[in-house]
């Protein structure tokens, strides 16, 4: 089952060796210590001892990042679907509009690209892993790996088809290559049959993959 298809209204079934979100844990705590883990511990301790960061500040930074998830982006999308004035501000200055909803974008420039009846957008960072982490949390592994970064700019329709998104030739596909200081996020098209829905109900349709552009929002049930 794809990650975004979990029904969060139902109790999760925990498989052995899988986390509550349904992913395998990355081996770390009970595997032999690696050279790079040793370096992380040493760097952290040196910085703490020299008073550059405190342990509490590191824990707070981890907590801030853990608290971010695609639900933040979904709130922004749902607001844009229901509030034309907000959508206009979002398209003009994504960082400022997201901040209105309590999503700090920090120093990054956030550019929102809108899917329409004839255009589909998808985002990538070919050079590294730049991602709208303030609105979606940390990126999935595949976003950072060679296959996606290499191919989506050259053969986006094939890549999207691998994600189960087959677009007709009549739809133009635009691929947006992020930079360290400028991040894109896709504003998917509002699903049909959702007239009069609340923002909260609409947000539940918005998947992470639909905001990357490798998927679409859930259809109205």
């Amino acid at each position: 089952m794809p990650h975004d298809d979990h029904d969060h209204d139902h109790e999760h079934v925990h498989h052995e060796g899988m986390s509550p979100s349904g992913h395998p844990y990355r081996a770390d705590q009970d595997e032999p210590l690696t050279y790079w883990q040793t370096m992380e511990i040493a760097v952290r301790e040196l910085l703490e001892e020299k008073g550059i960061f405190s342990a509490a500040e590191i824990a707070t930074a981890i907590g801030r990042m853990d608290a971010r998830s695609p639900a933040d982006g979904a709130r922004v999308v749902a607001k844009a679907w229901t509030d034309p004035a907000f959508k206009a501000r979002l398209m003009a200055d994504g960082s400022a509009a997201a901040a209105e909803l309590g999503c700090a974008i920090d120093a990054l420039k956030l550019v929102v690209v809108e899917n329409t009846a004839d255009t589909h957008n998808v985002i990538v960072c070919t050079l590294c892993s730049c991602y709208p982490r303030n609105l979606l949390g940390l990126p999935p592994d595949w976003y950072k790996n060679r296959a996606y970064r290499s191919r989506v700019v050259k053969e986006p329709r094939s890549v999207l088809a691998e994600f189960g998104l087959a677009l007709p030739d009549s739809i133009r596909v635009r691929v947006h290559d992020s930079t360290a200081d400028m991040r894109y996020i896709v504003l998917p098209a509002r699903p049909a049959g959702t007239e009069g829905w609340s923002e909260e109900r609409l947000a539940a349709l918005v998947t992470r993959d639909s905001m990357i552009g490798v998927g679409l929002p859930h259809a109205a049930a």
């Binding site: 990650h3 992913h23 844990y25 990355r26 081996a27 770390d28 705590q29 511990i41 999935p140 595949w142």
Partner: peptide, 11 residues
């Protein structure tokens, strides 16, 4: 594209 994902480890 191998659609692998993992929960990030503490380190």
């Amino acid at each position: 594209v191998e659609r692998s994902e993992h929960d990030y480890a503490l380190w």
